[in-house]
Computed example of a mutant assay.
Amino acid sequence: MAEQQPQENARQFIVQRIYTKDVSFECPNAPEIFRQEWQPAHEVTLNTRVNKLGEETYEVVLAVTVTTKIGDKVATLVEVQQGGIFAASGFSKEELGPLLGAYCPNILFPFAREVVSDLVIKGSFPQLVLQPVNFDALYAQHQQQAADANESAQPH
């Protein structure tokens, strides 16, 4: 029987840790905001950043900001930074971008969504469930914008 040799270029992806890095909840117009009819408008902003921790280890941070307004008054402002430490080996540079820029935020989003919901409820507001996000499409859009910006910066 032939012994199986470990493949040198085998891809490996490991979630090492998921954690809440930073949390902020503000209700700047309390208690007056509780007297108004609850017809909220929500604005959600997402941002990600990647920090290289080691040769094959990365921290990915998904920042979620949700601003809820009643008319022109801010009811709540919730900011959550959900972090994760991921090990990724055997991936090409072209594969690593979508892995860290789309796949990892997709893993982190349910955790961030839960923190947002819990904070809003603890502020005595109705539950807020953030809708699913297509991080693949957001990553592709970001890459296209970066390519367009690069192209327009080139001398013609």
Results as ranks from 00 to 15, higher is better:
A2W: 07
A2I: 09
A2N: 13
Q7D: 13
E8D: 08
N9H: 12
N9S: 13
N9G: 10
A10D: 07
A10F: 13
R11P: 13
Q12Y: 11
F13P: 10
R17I: 11
K21A: 05
D22S: 07
D22C: 07
V23K: 04
S24P: 05
S24W: 06
F25L: 13
P28T: 04
P28F: 00
P28Y: 02
A30S: 12
P31S: 01
E32A: 14
I33R: 06
R35F: 10
W38T: 05
Q39V: 11
P40G: 02
A41P: 03
H42M: 11
V44E: 06
T45W: 02
L46F: 06
N47G: 12
T48E: 03
R49M: 01
N51I: 08
K52S: 04
K52F: 00
L53D: 01
G54Y: 00
Y58L: 03
Y58F: 15
Y58A: 00
V61P: 06
A63M: 12
T65R: 14
V66W: 07
T67M: 10
T68P: 04
G71N: 06
G71L: 09
K73P: 08
K73N: 13
T76G: 08
V78Y: 05
V78A: 07
E79M: 12
V80N: 01
Q81K: 14
Q82S: 07
G83I: 05
G83L: 07
A87L: 14
S92I: 07
S92A: 08
K93L: 12
K93V: 13
E94T: 15
E94C: 08
L96C: 10
G97L: 09
G97Q: 14
P98N: 09
P98D: 09
P98Q: 04
L100Q: 05
L100F: 06
G101D: 00
A102G: 05
I107M: 09
L108W: 02
F111Q: 07
R113F: 01
E114W: 00
E114V: 02
S117K: 01
D118A: 08
L119N: 06
V120W: 00
I121D: 08
K122V: 09
S124T: 15
F125I: 02
P126M: 03
Q127Y: 01
L128P: 00
L128D: 01
D136A: 09
L138C: 10
L138T: 10
Q141D: 15
H142W: 10
H142P: 01
H142C: 10
Q143K: 15
Q144S: 13
Q145A: 14
Q145T: 08
Q145W: 05
A147V: 09
A147T: 05
D148F: 05
D148A: 15
N150W: 12
N150V: 10
A153Q: 12
Q154E: 14
